[in-house]
Design a protein around this nucleic acid. Structure first.
Lengths: 325, 325
DNA sequence: CTGAAAGCGCTAACAT
DNA sequence: ATGTTAGCGCTTTCAG
């Protein structure tokens, strides 16, 4: 065991390289308007490596007035393979701009988003959907810029997804839709949003609102729901997400109902399992990587002072038509 | 648009409350060994509320020498519903101890874990499985304590999961096992670990190593794999995870094979869909919330200087027996 | 091209 | 019980 070995500081590096802390800072930050001779730069970098030096984030942000940290708020529901791709792309794009991403699972008790933001001193908070006003205000007071993905049409993404599900079904000739609600209470908010989108599309087409049924990830429950929809002459159902849709498909098989003949089903989110369902599940997909990239651009823009008045990006949800519809 | 309204500082609060910054600090931190009169405390708190003041994390950690931030590294693969429950419990428990959790999706290019750690100045980095030595060392040099979940038996969790899958099957009388490998290359490492556990259990029971087949989340591919296993007189297969298992179940149906009669299947991770599969999927579950709690305890312990020599916690994987086996 | 000096906002001795 | 005084490690004018 080495003695607790105090962490190396910028001053240590300066000493080791025979320069001042200022020079170290210049080298490490490529401070513009400075011409450091190659030799000096090399010596500094060498000392940095030697000492395993990493600037302390807190000192940096305190002195500079801004950190290079971006905080992403993930609604705890949408944790899934899609989000992962998105987060990775987002992180990568941010890294290219010298920014560091960390994420916060929202929704749980404990630390609120503004608390976390203040704790890590993030300069930007990003979120897939808008935050409520109080939170947004608190965040801004905590000194953070806010960046969201926003629909061009000013439709929050979730609602738009529901619309797409329904429109797809309606285009196919269905006149009476069902909606499969998720079980978990924390999903309720998003589910309501998504269903609102479905209802809008129905209204727009002159149809009744969808017949919403509470469901569970349980084959028996799903079988029952499927029969109920049939009884009410529903011919197609929008599921809250792909998991619910897949469970519904299973329940239908149990009830000896086929898709899309007896009941058409469309999911949401396009999880990998959707293609391996029987029949393969139609669903709503996003181009998450694109979103990751453009959200990163929006962050960079926001940091450069240009507050883009225009929506930075769209999740660009779109229908993936497969056999269940 | 309000003028950029400089963020309130501790000094602002002090002024507004008619006290010194020290007192503000004392009140906000419940600094032990200080007896602040109720009246003063009230005034300070009032001013804090009034100004929407939140201490700046970077200044705090710089002055105090340690931050209250904990960084969790999530292997980008294991993003799933289970992890979510875990993260939430972990965050909640940490919050009770006054600590703030943020997470980092590991594996992606861009920022390395030590980079992120230094950027946010985390005092503790937690991870579900051990980190490689270089990373661990870099992290320690960056001033962070490290906390992992560790098996009592010193078996990394992933390998232990594989053992459990196999032992379960072997107990049931199966003598020739198959292993369903995932498609994604990034999953390979964990898959290898899990399969190693399966191989160990086989060896221990005097059986041949499992017949590993590469699979995809695709019904046709799975149907083919299932036939192949049957041909090689495999009677039971361990799937990399529940998704793979569910897809396999679907493929088997397509191939007119039943579970567990023609081929027994056991998954891993216990995702919610596992119970809604047909037949309901046997799998390996964790008590993630327990893990979240004890990992938080370990963090707190580590921060109090007691470096627990004993493994802080175990993921406690266990078999969930359902109809597919 | 490089260094000296002044803080950033907060905490922690040390007074009082 | 509260204020004074130093810094924490870094960036950033401003001189040289």
């Amino acid at each position: 065991m080495t003695p607790p070995a105090k962490r190396a500081t910028s001053a240590d590096v300066a000493r080791a390289a025979g320069v001042s802390a200022t020079t170290v800072s210049y080298v490490l930050n490529d401070t513009p308007g400075q011409s450091i001779p190659e030799e000096t730069r090399r010596r500094v970098l060498e000392a940095v490596r030697q000492l395993g030096y990493r600037p302390r984030g807190s000192a940096r942000s305190l002195a500079a007035g801004r950190s290079d940290v971006v905080l992403l708020s993930i609604p705890h529901l949408s944790i899934g393979p899609g989000i992962t791709r998105f987060v990775e792309q987002f992180a990568t794009s941010l890294a290219q701009a010298g920014l560091t991403l960390v994420t916060h699972l929202a929704g749980a008790p404990g630390r609120s988003l503004p608390d976390v933001c203040a704790a890590i001193d993030a300069s930007v908070v990003a979120s897939l959907d808008p935050l409520d006003d109080d939170t947004a205000q608190a965040l801004r007071r905590a000194g953070a810029d806010l960046v969201f993905t926003t629909e061009v049409e000013a439709h929050p993404t979730m609602r738009r997804m529901g619309r797409l599900q329904a429109e797809h079904l309606i285009d196919l000739g269905h006149r009476r839709l069902g909606y499969a609600m998720p079980e978990h209470p924390l999903l309720r908010r998003i589910a309501d949003d998504r269903m609102r989108g479905v209802a809008e599309a129905c209204a727009h087409a002159g149809l009744e609102p969808p017949l919403a049924l509470d469901t569970k990830l349980d084959t028996a429950v799903m079988a029952r729901a499927a029969r109920r929809w049939r009884r009410e002459s529903v011919t197609a159902v929008c599921a809250y997400n792909d998991e619910v849709a897949i469970a519904l498909l299973t329940g239908m098989r149990r009830a000896r109902l086929t898709a899309p003949g007896d009941l058409a089903v469309v999911g949401a989110d396009d999880i990998p399992l959707a293609q391996a369902a029987e029949p393969p599940l139609s669903t709503i997909a996003f181009d998450l990587e694109k979103v990751g990239r453009s959200l990163a651009d929006a962050v960079v823009a926001s940091l450069s002072g240009r507050k883009p008045r225009l929506p930075p990006t769209s999740m660009d949800p779109h229908v993936v038509h497969r056999a269940s519809t």
